[in-house]
């Protein structure tokens, strides 16, 4: 009975909080750019104006995709540490797995998996998904996508293989935990190197294009016939590597955790 009362009061409290927020916010809207209007306020308009301003390249980011240019150029440091958060989550996951990093996956997995049709189809689809994910990552600075989108699409491939076949098949293909951890570290170090390379040229950390007050000439946007979008492409590729490998680690760790816990519960 007492629990019921506290619960209903909680409902009332949270609903009241939500409603008061709306009211306050609507009161706060008048005259300020809080609610959608016909024009953009503040930094947004500046970025839209300048991200691919080929007529005045003082503040440009070299990418027609404003979101990616914010993610890797205007606010690039945010994204590096967002990757760090993901890294920390995966480290925490490995910490919780019995057996940890050295856990072995052995077995044939012959009787696991679904019917033959699903097995064949998931093989084909996972191969196509690899291309799709690389496409998303590599074109992140031209069209929607980017490192994280590409990496998380890549994660569909191991997921399908786990569902259609088994984890053992995945391991036999070469998706090994140690290899994934190595590649992830490679990607992370790549991110740090790309972002701190301008320091050697007396530039700023995570600088992409040439800036007033910095001697770094900027990563090349056009390299002969190739359009590279400055540092964005390297960042996207390394982020792709990191995110895809982290997802693979998560799946394998999830399997290890599942099996490790199954017996003792």
């Amino acid at each position: 009975m007492r629990r019921g009362i506290s619960r209903s009061s909680l409902v009332i409290v949270s609903l009241a909080l939500a409603l008061s927020l709306i009211l306050v916010y609507f009161a706060a809207m008048g005259g300020l750019g809080g609610h959608p209007s016909a024009s953009i306020v503040g930094i947004g308009q500046f970025i839209v104006n300048n991200t691919y301003n080929v007529f005045n390249r003082t503040y440009w980011a070299g990418s027609p995709e404003a979101v990616t240019s914010i993610i890797w150029d205007y606010r690039g440091f945010d994204t590096i540490f967002e990757t760090t958060v993901l890294f920390a989550a995966v480290m925490a996951a490995l910490l919780l797995v019995p057996g940890g990093i050295r856990g072995r996956i052995q077995g044939s997995g012959k009787d696991e998996g679904l019917t033959l049709i699903v097995k064949t189809a998931s093989k084909i689809i996972s191969c196509i998904v690899v291309v799709l994910a690389l496409n998303l990552a590599l074109r992140g600075y031209i069209s929607p996508g980017g490192g994280f989108a590409g990496g998380s699409s890549y994660a569909i491939a191991p997921l399908l293989l786990i569902a259609g076949l088994s984890v053992f098949y995945l391991v036999r293909l070469g998706y090994r935990l140690s290899r994934a951890i190595g590649l992830r570290t490679l990607g992370l170090v790549g991110l740090v190197v790309v972002s701190s390379l301008p320091l050697l040229y007396m530039g700023y950390i995570i600088q992409n294009q040439a800036k007033p007050g910095s001697m770094f000439p900027g990563y090349p946007v056009f390299l002969g016939p190739l359009y590279l979008g400055g540092s964005l492409i390297y960042m996207n590729v390394f982020e792709f590597l990191v995110v895809s490998m982290e997802f693979i680690i998560i799946f394998i760790a999830m399997f290890l955790l599942d099996r490790g816990c199954g017996g003792s519960a």
């Binding site: 679904l114 998931s122 569909i156 997921l159 569902a163």
Partner: peptide, 12 residues
């Protein structure tokens, strides 16, 4: 793609 994954995982 998501719909396919959804089917496969529900059945699995």
């Amino acid at each position: 793609l998501w719909a396919f994954m959804f089917d496969v995982y529900i059945s699995k």
